[in-house]
Design a protein around this nucleic acid. Structure first.
Length: 569
RNA sequence: CGGGGCGUAGCGCAGCUUGGUAGCGCGUCUGGUUUGGGACCAGAAAGUCGCAGGUUCGAAUCCUGUCGCCCCGACCA
């Protein structure tokens, strides 16, 4: 490709709409342009990267026994009504009507379509297992699209669905995908981590996320400094150490006047009671029902854990009014003693003795409160957010934390959708049974953004070799000098003949401009044809990820390039 | 949807408080001089100031409404 003909409109300045580095660089380097919020056009360079990612994904899916199909984006409402998700999916689904006012959705995911399809055409145990996948655009009317490609409303996703005879079969399919995903991220040359995940609204009981490590990642990952344990903080299990439980004797409960003390810190300041000796009470509305979540004073609640424990659909922090009517006291004076609504007590609090908390009466607190004697919770469960330094749930190690971008997520769905959509098969004994399903997603366009997020410097993108839009850029320092252009052209053609994807920067620009652009768009190797070296029949070979320049005789360039490309791949 | 902010030339911004000729830098086009890390000189094109109402002799500027965009929160590949 000639740079003079390539459509890659680079920008010198950072568009003001871009906040994160991947968004800024993809815009500046002429890879993407926004059409509307969360919807982007992929320009030629970007689409080359996308296609490379797709191909790696496709190869690994095929290798794992997946079969590629292409399902419709436009999906009839009736399918979604059948699964019960037409109402549940809510605002996030793009909906439209045809000329007869029939309802449709733009597919945010394809469980409905694929399950219906498999149910219609796979009837026997002999037809299973099936691993069906596709790579196509998904539509989700996100509450807030952001960070460019990171969270779009239209994005490219690979989604695979597995159909098995039973749980044992699902375990095998799940394991295949787990392995395939690992191979994919290895092959993409991304630093990543597999973590245990919450399965969220999609349902199911086992789930892993594949996280590309990046400082600005939206997700927090905790991992053990000793063993292999790693989890999304949303999921990370908090344990208590039986040894730590004090054998302190219970003291008599005492009510104190706290006219101006509302927060945990106020009590620390006024009475010198450390936050670890206090308890905080958070009020939530779970599907409209008021509940109390009780945690140690210095801890944060993990809402997802609470939501899962309650088994509710919607969980919001309660408003002042609901709290006043439900508890008879306002925020800042709440506590488990005499609490009129159900108490969900964090595991850790069950070990605390003689703690301080609100008295459910404005301007009063209790001291020396004890579980059992002074109050009885509905449940004692793990609902606190894990933090760095916590005990590992699996070994004697401690938890560390990093941030990551979720680029892949695999779920065991079980029979949730086969039940709703009636996906059954006849087994060896002539019995009807429900298929057991799994689903497995990779955000392809997000993976491209994550790759940039992880691989860049002050000059621009540094594409990992397997997904670089081109592998080599040949830069004649002065396009008007015939000897330089001739050598550059010769090398360029030789590269192409050897199956190496190359650009020749034949533009009549100053060398600085070409170098800046080459760095910005992140081509891994640059071959510079300049006057001085050319006198010795040499050119420069520069790796985008290193500072040093290597002088190479023109006749050796191809083999040097091949060695570098081969070595890093 | 709640909170914060922004819409002025392709990109980055000023002008708005105090109404009166629409400006700057970069980019683009033409000519020339240059040519190893975003050159210089000269010239040029390009904006119904997001849109719609209103106030006014006169609105980018004041008022009302509306649309769009960005950031923080809940959601997710």
């Amino acid at each position: 490709m000639k740079a003079s003909e390539l459509f890659f409109p680079t920008l010198r300045e950072v568009p003001s709409e871009a906040e994160v580095v991947s968004h800024q660089l993809l815009l500046r380097a002429g890879f993407i342009r926004k059409t509307t919020a969360g919807v982007y056009t992929y320009l030629p360079l970007a689409y080359r990267v996308i296609k490379k990612i797709m191909n790696i994904v496709r190869e690994e899916m095929d290798r794992a026994g997946g079969q590629e199909v292409l399902m419709p984006i436009i999906q009839p409402a009736e399918l979604w009504k059948k699964s019960g998700r037409w109402d549940v999916y809510g605002e996030e689904m793009f909906r439209l009507q045809d000329r007869h006012n029939r309802d449709f959705a733009l597919g945010p995911t394809h469980e409905e379509i694929i399950t219906t399809l498999v149910n219609a055409d796979a009837h026997s145990y002999r037809d299973l297992p099936l691993l069906i996948y596709q790579i196509q655009n998904k539509y989700r009317d996100e509450i807030r699209p952001r960070f460019g490609l990171m969270r779009g409303r239209e994005f490219i996703m690979k989604d695979l669905y597995s159909f098995d005879l039973d749980d044992a079969g699902l375990d095998i399919s799940y394991h295949k995908m787990y392995e395939a995903y690992n191979r994919i991220y290895e092959r993409l040359h991304l630093q990543y981590r597999v973590v245990e995940a919450d399965s969220g609204a999609i349902g199911g009981n086992e789930s892993h996320e594949f996280m590309v490590l990046a400082e600005n990642g939206e997700a927090e990952i905790v991992y053990c400094d000793t063993c292999d344990y790693a989890a999304n903080v949303e999921k990370a299990v908090c344990t208590i150490d039986e040894q730590e439980a004090g054998d302190e004797a219970m003291l008599a409960i005492e009510k104190i006047h706290t006219p101006a003390q509302k927060t945990i810190q106020d009590i620390v300041d006024a009475f010198g009671i450390p936050s670890q000796r206090q308890v905080k009470t958070l009020m939530y509305l779970a599907d409209g029902v008021l509940v109390a979540a009780v945690l140690r004073g210095d801890r944060e609640l993990n809402e997802i854990k609470l939501k899962n424990a309650l088994g509710c659909n919607q969980l919001f922090m309660a408003d002042q009014e609901s709290v006043m009517t439900g508890c008879g006291a306002g925020f800042g004076s709440l506590g488990p003693v005499g609490m009129k609504v159900k108490i969900y007590l964090d595991l850790e609090v069950s070990q605390m003795k003689n703690f301080a908390c609100g008295a459910n009466e404005d301007h009063y607190h209790y001291l020396n409160v004890n579980l059992g004697r002074d109050f009885v919770p509905e449940k004692i469960i793990d609902i606190r957010a894990a933090v760095v330094g916590d005990n590992c749930p699996l070994c004697p190690g401690h938890l560390q934390s990093v941030r990551g971008i979720e680029v892949g997520h695999i779920f065991k769905l079980g029979i949730k959708y086969s039940q709703a959509l009636d996906a059954k098969y006849i087994d060896q004994n002539g019995q009807e049974k429900l298929m057991v399903m799994g689903c497995y997603g990779i955000g392809v366009s997000r993976t491209m953004a994550a790759a940039v997020e992880q691989n860049n410097d002050e000059n621009g993108i540094i594409w990992p070799l397997p997904i670089a839009p081109f592998q080599v850029i040949v830069v004649p320092v002065n396009a008007k000098k015939e000897d330089q252009m001739n050598t550059a052209r010769g090398l360029y053609e030789e590269l192409i003949d050897n199956g190496i994807e190359a650009i020749i920067d034949d533009r009549d620009e100053r060398a600085g401009v070409k170098f800046k652009d080459a760095d910005l768009i992140g081509i891994p190797l640059r071959i510079t044809v300049g006057p001085k070296a050319l006198e010795q029949n040499q050119v420069e070979v520069k790796k985008r990820w290193e500072k040093d320049i290597e002088l190479v005789a023109v006749e050796n360039v191809i083999s040097v390039v091949q060695t570098i490309l081969g070595g890093r791949d």
